[in-house]
Amino acid sequence: MIYAILMAGGRGTRLKVPCEKPLFRLHDKPLIKYVIDNVNQSKFIDELIIAVSPNTPETTEYLNSTDGDFRILDTSGEDYLTDLSYILDYFEKKSKDDVLLFINADLPFISTQTIDYVLDYYLNSDKDALSTLVPVEIFEKLGLDYSYEFDGYVPSGLNVLRSINIVQDEDQLVIPKDELALNINTIPDSEVAEKLYNEYYV
């Protein structure tokens, strides 16, 4: 089985808005809804799991009010690595052979095409894990800040792991696409996204 794990339990403190980050509206639509819609069109993904936490009760309420094709998984929301470990444990108890695509809820422009490209690459790789990276130049071109870079590349928030909670041998895939740099962490990020909206959704 191939599961998409949509991470929607973080505190989102950098955005500094009165709503939870997954519910922040880009062009009058919650960020998380863009990701749900694009993930659900993937030809590889068997099931979408949305990981929520006590940090995002309104997001959980919103998800429960929709007629979406997904399942909700409660995590602690303590931090990303703690939740990741919990999720890997949860799936490992079911099977050690499943594929888990982790994707952040703040990537509204992530396309189904890119999701399927990453999964196709992973399925043809001989490694258990895959991380995707975006060149720093993409962020500089768009005028976006980033919190971490290594050798000129920034983690994109889209990763693939086997359903085992151990350190996994990892491949890296560089994808020089604007859509992976547009994770909405701050108001300036959202302003850039609004300007580019028509390129993706009109």
Rank of each mutant, 00 (worst) to 15 (best):
L173W: 03
G68D: 13
L130K: 03
N124V: 07
F24A: 02
G9P: 03
T56Y: 05
E194Y: 08
T132V: 05
Y117I: 14
N38E: 12
Y122A: 07
N40E: 09
Y148I: 14
L130I: 08
S147K: 15
R71H: 11
R25H: 11
I2P: 02
V52D: 03
I138H: 08
C19I: 13
A129L: 13
K93G: 06
V136F: 06
L196C: 11
E47F: 04
K16H: 13
Y62E: 02
I103P: 02
G68R: 11
D46V: 05
L84I: 05
D126V: 13
E92Q: 12
E78H: 13
T66F: 12
D89H: 06
K29A: 00
Y117A: 15
T186N: 08
T56C: 04
S76I: 05
N40K: 11
I187R: 09
R14H: 13
E194S: 10
Q113P: 08
L84P: 00
F91N: 02
I138R: 09
K96L: 14
V39H: 01
I87M: 04
D89F: 03
I36V: 14
P22K: 07
L133Y: 06
L48H: 01
S156D: 01
D189N: 11
D79E: 10
E58K: 10
K94Q: 11
T60G: 07
F109Y: 14
N198Q: 14
V134N: 00
V39E: 04
V174P: 05
S76P: 03
Y117G: 10
K141N: 12
V118W: 05
V167T: 09
M7C: 03
Q113K: 15
S147N: 15
G12V: 01
D178T: 04
E179Y: 04
K96A: 12
P18K: 08
L158W: 00
E199P: 00
D83I: 02
L130H: 06
K33H: 12
V167K: 09
L84T: 07
T56I: 02
P22Q: 10
